[in-house]
Design a protein around this nucleic acid. Structure first.
Lengths: 204, 204
DNA sequence: TGATTACTCATACGCTCGTATGAGCAGATC
DNA sequence: GATCTGCTCATACGAGCGTATGAGTAATCA
């Protein structure tokens, strides 16, 4: 891991974890500094306020995500294959960074306007998928429809399923912590997406 | 509205709204009682604790949802049409009860075990959709695949899109508060789901 | 009519919160 | 070696928190 060291980085990492699990109000500055093995005053000193630390924690997780998806899409395969790569990348990132899937919905829900890093990431990723769908429509491999709306259907699944992970395990007995189960789930989602997008066999 | 009256009902309504918007820790008993025009002590008196009020607020929104979907599915149409009805009912309920879409992800994320009412609702609704998919497979109108996994792909979309509603409006310029936009979105999702589930034209 | 019941209300308790303050301290700079 | 700089740390402050308590009150029932 080339994670940066030092107190600010430790604070961001701790903040990410606790904000994700307990929400903004539920994660206290005391708990964050304790987890980061830093002093209570460190948040004020390095970030100015709890709210600024929140934004920093958010950016620390959205920025790499945006980059990761862009990299996944950077091949010259047919559109449906590129989309599959992107969907797999979303699942992978969410799996590596379980805090991400917890963080985002909270941000959406918190009422206030969408913070910059989240907004940029959403714009970029939605545009990416919509672009791939438009490519597929030009190729004739993807059916008609508004690419921007279809992109939402594609993105919804990895996000929702990862967010619901813990609940699905308990309520529906689908345990994504088992790699075999995860792989079956991912495959099922990808089949669904391919079928949902594909142009009909018989033409038009 | 045949909403029950009295202090307990007012508390539940206020709690639903504030918990949904600010999370468990972020919604104070004082704010809830103020909104409900009740006394500070009313929560303790009627519910025993803040946590118990939280559960009551949760049940007040999940129970009607479960019932609504069951009613939507209660026709003897082909499976894909019944699924469409259920998906539309999800969109409608989430639209009527915007707190619901904010409440649920918080619950998922809160770490602790899934509360009873949510668990029961998830089980019921997931089972409902999986059952409809299995019906379609017997009819030959729905392609092969694990109905329980395919049901997740179906359910993901209305939930995710409604949860993200505010963010989508700002980041991606899709404003679901306009009925026309909403209808286009719902249609797109249903097309996607039908295509994602349908058996291939050519058989097998 | 007097007792009981169900509820509201004001107030108080102990606790935790986010932030501010100023002393302490290692390493760089001159 | 003195000064400065960047940072850590312990402590303090006022505010808000969830909950407990007991007096007050209106309706119910004997």
């Amino acid at each position: 891991m080339n994670t940066p060291t030092g107190t600010p980085a430790a604070l961001v990492a701790a903040a990410r974890q606790l904000f994700a699990r307990h929400g903004y109000a539920g994660a206290s500055v005391r708990a964050i500094t304790r987890l980061a093995r830093a002093n209570l005053g460190a948040v004020t000193y390095h970030f100015g306020s709890k709210a600024a630390l929140y934004d920093a924690a958010l950016a620390s997780i959205t920025d790499p995500f945006r980059e990761r998806l862009a990299r996944a899409a950077a091949t010259d395969e047919p559109a449906l294959d590129r989309i599959e790569r992107v969907v797999r990348a979303v699942f992978e990132y969410l799996h590596e960074q379980p805090d991400f899937g917890r963080f985002i919905p909270q941000v959406m829900v918190r009422g206030r306007k969408v913070p910059g890093p989240v907004r940029r990431t959403m714009e970029a990723n939605h545009g990416l998928i919509a672009g791939l769908i438009a490519q597929g429509q030009r190729e004739g491999t993807i059916r008609r429809g508004d690419p921007r709306l279809m992109a939402l259907s594609v993105g919804a699944q990895p996000f929702f399923l990862t967010l619901m992970q813990a609940a699905l395990q308990r309520a529906v007995a689908i345990d994504q912590s088992q790699p075999a189960v995860r792989e079956r789930l991912v495959r099922s989602v990808i089949e669904f997406i391919r079928a949902g997008l594909a142009a009909r066999q018989e033409g038009s």
